[in-house]
């Protein structure tokens, strides 16, 4: 690796170069290896085994166990008192907000995988680009925290 000092002017100059270059082309520099599509075949064997085991467990336990049901017994469990209403109720919006934020952040993390694998090949340019990317990511992150997505004890 080139241990070059990253000064402010140097960084700006590099950034300009970077903006002109094609980032997608840079991210596609995969390390050469002789992997074949057929390497993925044993996954099917594994999937078949897993499926067979689960089917076996389900069918055998279905056939072996006793079956006796009544209205009271089939009611959903609520600590012994009579069940009230339906469980398909609206839930706290906090969970939904978490899910939305997860979708955004997970996409960002996926972007970082090809970058991380090619980190050495991309050199300083890639590092500076990702520092900028992380900066924007953290800015958005600070905003959602400020908006109170994690204030669970309030309504």
């Amino acid at each position: 690796m080139r241990p070059k000092p990253v000064g402010a002017t140097f960084a700006l100059q590099r950034l300009l170069v970077l903006l002109r270059s094609n980032l997608t082309a840079m991210l596609l520099v995969l390390p050469a290896a002789n992997y074949q599509p057929s390497d993925y075949l044993p996954i099917l064997i594994q999937f078949g085994l897993a499926l067979a085991f689960v089917a076996f467990a389900m069918i055998v336990s279905h056939l072996v166990g006793p079956k006796r049901n009544s209205t009271v017994k089939d009611a959903s469990f609520e600590c012994g008192i009579e069940s009230v209403g339906n469980a398909r109720t609206p839930i706290s919006v906090k969970y939904f907000l978490t899910a939305i934020v997860f979708v955004l952040f997970d996409v960002e993390v996926i972007f970082m995988y090809p970058w991380a694998v090619n980190f050495r090949a991309l050199g300083n340019d890639g590092f500076i680009a990702m520092i900028l990317f992380m900066f924007f990511l953290l800015a958005g992150f600070a905003y959602i925290i400020k908006k109170g997505i994690l204030r669970w004890n309030e309504a």
Binding site: V60, V64, G65, P66, K67, N69, T71, D74, S76
Partner: peptide, 10 residues
């Protein structure tokens, strides 16, 4: 394996 298979109503 030998326990009862239970399906709650609803």
């Amino acid at each position: 394996f030998t326990k009862e298979e239970f399906f709650p109503a609803g």
